[in-house]
């Protein structure tokens, strides 16, 4: 699980063009949206693509993303349970 979380942090920084942010700067339980990393709706869509591309998980409804992408912790848990890749 630790490895997955690190992997997620690194992928998110790359895919979302988060300049000046390092893996160490992202805490497992920090909110990703809103105040935390300040991601927006387009970032959410990119994360949905990420889930599909890297882990073979397809989300049909963008609203599901809200709960899944709350933090690195929730993302990792969801992926561990549902990944097909």
């Amino acid at each position: 699980m630790e490895a997955l979380k690190q992997e997620l942090k690194s992928k998110i920084i790359e895919v979302l063009n988060l300049e000046d942010i390092a893996i160490e700067d992202i805490n497992d339980n920090d909110p990703l949206f809103g105040d935390g990393l300040g991601l927006d709706s387009i970032d959410a869509l990119e994360l949905i693509v990420l889930l599909d591309k890297e882990y073979g998980i397809r989300l049909a409804d963008p609203k599901q993303g809200k709960a899944i992408f709350e933090s690195i912790e929730t993302m990792a848990a969801y992926i561990a349970e549902n990944r097909t890749k």
Partner: peptide, 9 residues
């Protein structure tokens, strides 16, 4: 095949 929403914008 992975269209990118951020790029499409």
């Amino acid at each position: 095949y992975f269209p990118s929403p951020a790029v499409f914008v």
